[in-house]
Design a protein around this nucleic acid. Structure first.
Lengths: 238, 238
DNA sequence: TGTACATCAGTGAACGCGCGTTCACTGATGTAC
DNA sequence: TGTACATCAGTGAACGCGCGTTCACTGATGTAC
């Protein structure tokens, strides 16, 4: 990697980092070339050496956010031994929650109302990143299945349409096969988790104390584990 | 009500309606005085006869949105007879879902990342409206309790901090008392429901077919009812 | 019922501002021979 | 190693645009007597 390429990569990193900082401190999802440039001690036109467009930068931020979230989940999950599926679920869910609380703007950027100008780039970069991020949870269920720790989920009405959709999506990532109900249970789990996390990250649960929210989260993910068939045996009592 | 007051009220209604239409067709949460005025065949300064500020209008829209959502939930719920608690839950949850799908911008306005400039007005108008909206679900549980249809929820770890927070919030709206676990179960129910609804409204479940999403929703709210102690007996099999 | 006055809705011009983006340019960094 | 050229980062000036908001005003609608 040439020297020029290195400084160029560093500048790109700095631009993105500056953009994130501005988002955080403004509390918005908007990001202005002129503000970024000013914060970096540069002029706005210089941005065009690195991004074709303002949208181009936003797309890059979105792709990065998905990668970051995915890595955060995977890293947290993998600090818990492979046998302790319940602990891995807990760790992954907590990472999801913490990431959203730390980066509510990014969270809304990738999992909120999509920006009007935004279209997933042709190469599928973003959708690829998003899949890797969210299907970190899937490997949990696959592991549980593999180690024989997956109980049948508490579902009475498994719908073939749902199963087929998820199965197809999953096939693109892993050849693993799971029992029918599990495909649906994973979606219930993600939706339920996401609801708590989104509401909290946007401050809509802040009429509760921090302790209350922590306890609620603990109970929430425990309940989710129960109904979706994940083991909750060696769970620390909160 | 004088003639002037009537036309004034009509204009205010038209402004808000126009603002909503612009949001819908732009897909954004932004709303510009100049666009509203243009769409109404007026000039921008005329807006200042009705709203002190652009923020003033946004606040009005937020308050209206909460009222609208609350009314939609209550109306749907009350089309089902009082005895059929499970059916009432289903109707209310479906109303929540449909409202979000029809008005994703409004949904994000009231339950997404709060706008930076926004502060709940001093009179507490918005928070009052938001309470009325979301606590439409609470009355479900109160009714279930009153008619003896409320089973104990599937919760093993009820946290006093959570219970106290919710109990206090509820006391402001109704003097009714519920079993400890129920307070917590209501939050689980809302969070889980919200997760599905938000993800779908923002298009993040659109890799599934409409039928798949419908089936998943049905199963989702049924599962929620099960774990939170609401009866699911006479439930139409989806 | 008519008249004099007050209130209100809406206009048009203007101000100040900041944005995205283009363009011709300078100076530094890399490359070929 | 040095020289000639190409590439690239960044600047400063400028364009066009649209926004929120203010202000003095006109004309219509309501009110008091």
């Amino acid at each position: 990697m040439s020297r020029r390429a290195r400084t160029r990569a560093a500048t790109i990193a700095e631009i993105k980092q500056t953009a994130l900082n501005l988002m955080r401190q403004s509390g918005t999802i908007d990001v202005r070339f002129t503000d970024i440039a000013r914060a970096m001690g540069m002029t706005a036109p210089a941005m065009y050496r690195y991004y074709a467009d303002r949208d181009d930068l936003v797309n890059a931020l979105i792709a990065d956010a998905f990668n970051d979230l995915g890595e955060a989940i995977a890293a947290a999950r993998d600090t818990v031994p492979r046998e302790d599926i319940g602990g891995r679920w807990r760790a992954a869910a907590t990472a999801y929650r913490q990431w959203a609380n730390k980066e509510p703007q990014l969270f809304t950027l990738i999992l909120g109302l999509p920006m009007p100008g935004y279209v997933a780039p042709a190469g599928g970069l973003t959708s690829e990143a998003s899949r890797r991020a969210l299907f970190q949870f899937v490997t949990l269920f696959v592991d549980a299945q593999r180690t024989g720790q997956l109980r049948p989920p508490l579902l009475k009405d498994v719908d073939p349409a749902v199963v087929q959709c998820v199965q197809q999506k999953m096939a693109e990532l892993s050849p693993e096969k799971l029992p029918q109900e599990v495909y649906q249970a994973m979606l219930h789990a993600w939706c339920s988790l996401h609801g708590f996390v989104a509401l909290e990250a946007y401050g809509h649960l802040h009429w509760m104390s921090q302790e209350g929210r922590d306890a609620l989260f603990d109970s929430h993910i425990r309940t989710i584990a129960q109904i979706s068939g994940l083991p909750v045996a060696n769970w620390p009592d909160g």
